[in-house]
């Protein structure tokens, strides 16, 4: 399915700009315009602030890495968007009609937490989500993939079955290093606490428990995680 060609990237009038992140624009392309199915064009744009050599290296490298790793995930049966075409710095991906975990948390779960009548069922949903998230990370790590940017914005959630679809693999790497896996978890822990300060404390504990059960080298990774946490927090020493 993946092929690489070199065409200039042009935006058709029926494409819709759905979001502009820090490094890429996402265009939604309707079915029939480019592919039979609706898809997403992820255009990594050039950054004027970066040295041209660095800029070109990063945009292309990240686009190709993402394409390669998505393909690998797909082959191993991990739910990710299907790659339709790679044309660095543009990536054409299957369109997934689902909210991100962040949207899901902010719209539904955490708001409802204040409502005591619904509290118990919301708490169950949160637990399910934590378990699913831990399993998703473990599945990636078991395949030797480190995501590099695990946040609640970088996972989509199919409802009501609660399957998670990992997205945005621009910083992902093929690696078997314990350190890299530990940092991957550390990044997620920090993202959770900064983006969702109201998330209950047991969410992270539960996520780790589910990771421990599903990941192959869980013990080594989690003990390295403790070291990474200490190293990170020690950073507060100087003014």
């Amino acid at each position: 399915m993946t092929r690489t060609e070199s065409e200039a990237f042009t935006v058709n009038s029926d494409w819709e700009l759905v979001s502009q992140g820090a490094e890429a624009k996402l265009w939604k392309i309707p079915a029939g315009s480019l592919f039979d199915v609706p898809c997403i064009a992820k255009e990594r744009f050039s950054k004027a602030y970066r040295h041209p050599a660095l800029d070109e290296k990063l945009t292309k490298q990240r686009c190709r890495a993402e394409s390669r790793i998505l393909t690998k995930c797909m082959e191993k049966g991990i739910p990710v968007p299907r790659v339709l075409r790679t044309d660095a710095p543009v990536l054409y991906l299957e369109y997934i009609d689902a909210p991100t975990v962040r949207e899901y948390l902010e719209s539904d779960l955490l708001l409802a937490l204040t409502n005591t009548a619904q509290n118990a069922s919301q708490h169950d949903k949160l637990q399910q989500l934590a378990l699913a998230f831990g399993q998703m990370v473990a599945a990636l790590h078991n395949m030797g993939i480190v995501h590099g940017d695990l946040t609640t914005s970088n996972a989509m959630i199919r409802l009501p079955e609660m399957t998670l679809v990992a997205i945005d693999f621009g910083l992902a790497k093929n690696t078997t290093s314990t350190e890299e896996r530990a940092v991957d978890l550390y990044v997620l822990e920090r993202a959770l606490s900064s983006t969702h300060p109201k998330l209950p404390d047991d969410f992270w504990t539960l996520l780790l428990t589910s990771y421990r059960a599903a990941a192959e080298k869980a013990e080594a990774t989690l003990s390295r995680l403790e070291q990474v946490q200490i190293r990170g927090r020690k950073r507060e020493c100087f003014g």
Binding site: S193, S194, V228, E236
Partner: peptide, 21 residues
């Protein structure tokens, strides 16, 4: 010299979104 942090305010605290590892 001793700190590298990206900080944003939310809910009565300056939250650290990113920092050096």
């Amino acid at each position: 010299g001793g700190n590298t942090q990206v900080i944003a305010y939310s809910n009565q605290r300056y939250r650290i979104f990113g920092e050096t590892i």
